[in-house]
C-alpha cells in the first residue's frame, strides 16, 4: 500500500519541519508599553528620506519615459487613466481580490484540517510532510496554463491555483506550531488526562496561532500573484486585473498596464494591513504582535 512517490525517502521525514517563516517569536525592538510615537512622523528626518527617494525615482521614470516611450508611460498618463476609469479598475480589482480571497480561504480550511491530522497521526505525518516540503519549494504557478486548459476560463482555475499556492506554507507552518508546544506544558496537561480534543483546543491551536499568522503574511501576497497569473494565462477571461493587463499590453496601452500594477500594489498593502490588524487582536499576548512591521 505504498502510495508515496519514490523520490520521497522515509529518511527525509525527520528533518521535514522547517518553519516556512522562522519561529515567529523574534523579540521585538519596540515593547508593548512604549509604542513608537506617531508624533515622530512630523519630524523631517523621518519622512524626508522617503519623499526625496520618491522624487528621484519619479524623475528617473519621467526621464526613462521620454527616452523609451514603448517601455514606460509618462506618470501623468497613468494617473489620468486611474482617475478617468476609476470604476473600471475598482470592479476588476474586486474580481481579482475576490478570487485571491476565496482561494486563500479554501486553502486555509483545507491546510488547517490536514495540519491537525498531520500533527495528531504519525503515519499521516510521515506520508504527507516530505511531499509537502518538496511541493512547498516547487513554483506551482507554473501549472496555471495547464489548469486553464483543464478548467476553462471561469473562476475555477483561478481558485485552484491560488489555493494551491497558499496550501503548503499554511500546512507546514501550522503543523510546526501545533507540534512546538514545550514538553513540560504537555506533561502538565497529560497528568490531568486531557483528551486530544482538549489538548488541541486549549493548548495546541492557540500555540499555533503565531505560526499561522506568519504563514498568512507569506501567502496573502502569493494569493494575489496566483489570481493574476491565472488570469494572465486565460486570455479571454471575463475580468480581473490580470485580464485587464493582458488585454492592454496586447494593444500597447502601457498606461493601463501600469495603472493596474499600481492598483495591485495598493491591494497588497491593504491585505497586509487587514492581516496585521487581525494579528494584533488575536495575538495581543505574543511579542511579535507588538513589533512594528510596517516601518
Amino acid at each position: 500500500m505504498s502510495i508515496v512517490p519514490e523520490q520521497v525517502a522515509p529518511e527525509q521525514a525527520a528533518p521535514a519541519q522547517p518553519a516556512v517563516a522562522g519561529p515567529p517569536a523574534e523579540p521585538s525592538r519596540y515593547s508593548l508599553k512604549h509604542p513608537r510615537s506617531r508624533i515622530g512622523w512630523i519630524r523631517p528626518a523621518v519622512w524626508l528620506p522617503l519623499v526625496a527617494m520618491l522624487a528621484i525615482l519619479g524623475a528617473l521614470w519621467q526621464w526613462g519615459a521620454a527616452k523609451l516611450p514603448y517601455l514606460l508611460p509618462p506618470l501623468p498618463s497613468i494617473g489620468r487613466s486611474l482617475s478617468d476609469d476609476f470604476g473600471y479598475y475598482l470592479k476588476n480589482a474586486g474580481i481579482t481580490l475576490g478570487e485571491a480571497a476565496a482561494g486563500l480561504a479554501i486553502s486555509f480550511v483545507a491546510a488547517f484540517v490536514l495540519a491537525v491530522l498531520v500533527s495528531e497521526v504519525p503515519v499521516v505525518r510521515r506520508a504527507v510532510m516530505p511531499i509537502a516540503v518538496v511541493l512547498n519549494v516547487t513554483p506551482v504557478v507554473a501549472i496555471a496554463p495547464a489548469l486553464v486548459v483543464a478548467f476553462g476560463f471561469g473562476a475555477t482555475p483561478k481558485l485552484v491555483i491560488t489555493a494551491l499556492i497558499c496550501f503548503f506554507p499554511i500546512l507546514i507552518n501550522t503543523t510546526t506550531g501545533l507540534r512546538s508546544v514545550p514538553q513540560q506544558v504537555l506533561q502538565v496537561y497529560r497528568t490531568m488526562d486531557a483528551s486530544r480534543l482538549e489538548m488541541l483546543a486549549y493548548v495546541r491551536v492557540p500555540n499555533a496561532l503565531p505560526y499561522l499568522f506568519a504563514a498568512l503574511r507569506i501567502v496573502s501576497p502569493l494569493s494575489v500573484i496566483g489570481a493574476v497569473v491565472a488570469e494572465l494565462s486565460a486570455s479571454g477571461s471575463t475580468g480581473g486585473l490580470g485580464t485587464v493587463i493582458s488585454t492592454a499590453s496586447s494593444m500597447n496601452n502601457l498606461a493601463v498596464v501600469y495603472a493596474s500594477i499600481f492598483v495591485l500594489a495598493l491591494m497588497g498593502v491593504l491585505v497586509m494591513l487587514v492581516i496585521t490588524l487581525a494579528e494584533r487582536r488575536a495575538l495581543h499576548w505574543h511579542e511579535s504582535s507588538s513589533s512594528d512591521r510596517t516601518k
Binding site: Q184, Q187, V188, T191, D193, V203
Partner: peptide, 17 residues
Amino acid sequence: CAAKLIGFVPQTPALLP
C-alpha cells in the same frame, strides 16, 4: 491521572502565555 489525583509542577512554570 484519569481521576485527576495528581498535581504536577515541572521545573519550568509551563504556563500558557
